[in-house]
């Protein structure tokens, strides 16, 4: 049952990342990987929020492990940093690496804070 929920969440999360990445690049260009950065920060915000709620394990599997897990990616982000660095674009490479981690952790903290600040019955 848990596996099915993880699969369902991921079936939506992965194509959502692909479409969001394309949409962000359409708007802001492809020179700096804003698309991947955006989905990673958005997914971290959502997961931080979800984990701050009194969620049943099934919702955690569907929305957390499945949706947020597949929406965000470490492999793509690392490849982008290396790709920028090997192209001699060191400042964007360093910015992508550190901005990505800092913004995602800040977003996770913000999401968690928002969830715990909500007046639950």
């Amino acid at each position: 049952m848990t596996a099915l929920l993880v699969a369902l969440g991921a079936a939506v999360g992965a194509p959502l990342r692909y479409l969001a990445d394309r949409a962000v690049q359409d708007r802001f260009g492809a020179r700096f990987p804003w698309g991947t950065l955006t989905v990673n920060v958005a997914g971290s915000l959502l997961l931080g929020f979800l984990l701050g709620l009194p969620l049943p394990p099934a919702a955690g599997a569907l929305l957390g492990t499945g949706l947020c897990g597949a929406l965000t990616t470490y492999s793509t982000s690392s490849y982008e940093t290396l790709s920028l660095a090997t192209a001699g674009r060191f400042r964007p490479a360093v910015a992508n690496a550190f901005l990505g981690v800092a913004a995602a952790v800040a977003a996770a903290a913000l999401g968690h804070l928002a969830a715990t600040a909500l007046p639950w019955p």
Partner: peptide, 27 residues
Amino acid sequence: RPFLGVGVLGGYTTFATHAVEARQLAS
């Protein structure tokens, strides 16, 4: 690339879990 890179490896690795784990450890 869409299946193996975007799908399998993108779905396998996660940025969100890593961020919330770091937040949890810090708190």
